[in-house]
Simulated assay, not measured.
Amino acid sequence: MTVNGDILQLEDVAKRFSVRRSPFAPRRSIRAVDGVNLTVRSGETLGLVGESGCGKSTLARLILKLHDVSTGRISFLGQQVHDARGRNLSRYRRQVQAVFQDPFSSLSPRMTAGQIVAEPMIVNGGLSSRETDERVADLFDKVGLNPAWMERYPHEFSGGQRQRIAIARGISLNPKLLVLDEPVSALDLSVRAQILNLLKDLQRNLGLSYLLISHDLPVVSRICTRIAVMYLGRIVEIGPAREIVANPRHPYTKALFSAVLPEHPRAHHQRIELEGEVPSPLDIPSGCRFRTRCPIAVERCEVEPPANLMINSDHMAECHFAIEKPNHGGELK
């Protein structure tokens, strides 16, 4: 896949929410996203993985401008957009669209499929009624739906067909970036493969970039150019998909991908079981935030936050021992 520069850049992006545990307790700050640096390149699929509650969806909402950042900067095609308002915000949102997990709940049951796909074009204007209808028919064809079905309602389609409608709506304004939040997790395996192939074809034909958020590690491994691993609000490892899968350097990444069954039943496979629970974002551990569950943690991990160690020019891990072994002789098992 050809990569022609960066399309989206996040620099030290953070999002904090003020909460209280009970009506009489003082308010405290949750660091849902905590100093994230991330780049999406033109024409690539960047996978974002991690356990539930790690901040993936909050990060997606920051990118989609559904939340405002607390600190940090977001740039799109070289222009700062984290504080965009008015026309600048509308222009940005036309270029960054989303496809969500459950197509049935994300599509209005009171609108026909054609109206659903046409709505973004009508809101943004610029096309006549005839041109809009022609564009909708063309989009149906692009996503593998019969244009004759434009008058049907969402409940008349299967799950896979509804997701095709959602994708058609997502590309209706010719965006440059699609945020895909678990786009196939609610679908059957056979339908899942069809939707993934459709996304790959659209990316190739339309020059799209994808940010794919998923718990499905085999899917992420198969279709992503690079993979970013998130834990408690931070990116702890990022690099080319093949390197992340074959040679992860952060203990958390190793544990995540060890849960994926090998393709061949006789292949050697060792599952890494993490002990303990994921800490609350209200009480993030000192030093390395993963140390309370890490099988190789040492005293240094408790007092010194790890820096971003560069494995090579395109592979980073936030771990003291991403390159060398800990001094107690343990290994990244």
Rank of each mutant, 00 (worst) to 15 (best):
N4L: 09
L10Q: 01
V13G: 00
F17T: 10
V19I: 14
R21H: 12
R31P: 01
N37V: 00
V40E: 01
L48E: 03
G50L: 06
S57M: 13
T58A: 07
A60L: 11
R61V: 01
L66V: 11
T71S: 02
G72F: 01
F76I: 00
Q79C: 03
R87D: 13
Y92H: 04
R93A: 13
R94N: 12
Q95K: 11
V99L: 05
D102H: 02
F104V: 13
M111R: 10
G114N: 08
Q115R: 10
N124S: 13
N124V: 09
S128F: 11
R130L: 07
E131K: 08
E131G: 13
D138H: 13
D141S: 15
V143P: 04
P147E: 05
W149C: 10
Q161H: 12
S172F: 10
L177I: 06
L178Q: 07
L180W: 00
S185G: 03
A186W: 01
L187I: 11
Q194C: 05
R204A: 14
N205Y: 09
N205V: 12
L208A: 10
S209R: 05
I213R: 05
I235M: 07
I235V: 12
V236H: 01
A241Q: 11
A241W: 03
Y252Q: 07
K254L: 13
K254I: 14
A255K: 00
S258D: 06
S258G: 09
L261S: 11
E263Q: 10
H264W: 08
E273T: 08
P279F: 09
S280I: 08
S280M: 09
P281E: 09
L282M: 07
D283Q: 13
C288R: 04
R289K: 13
R291D: 08
T292D: 06
T292C: 11
T292W: 04
R293A: 14
R293S: 15
V298I: 15
V298Q: 14
E299N: 15
E304W: 11
P305S: 14
L309P: 04
E318H: 07
E318D: 08
E318I: 08
H320T: 00
F321R: 08
F321Y: 15
A322I: 01
G330V: 13
L332M: 15
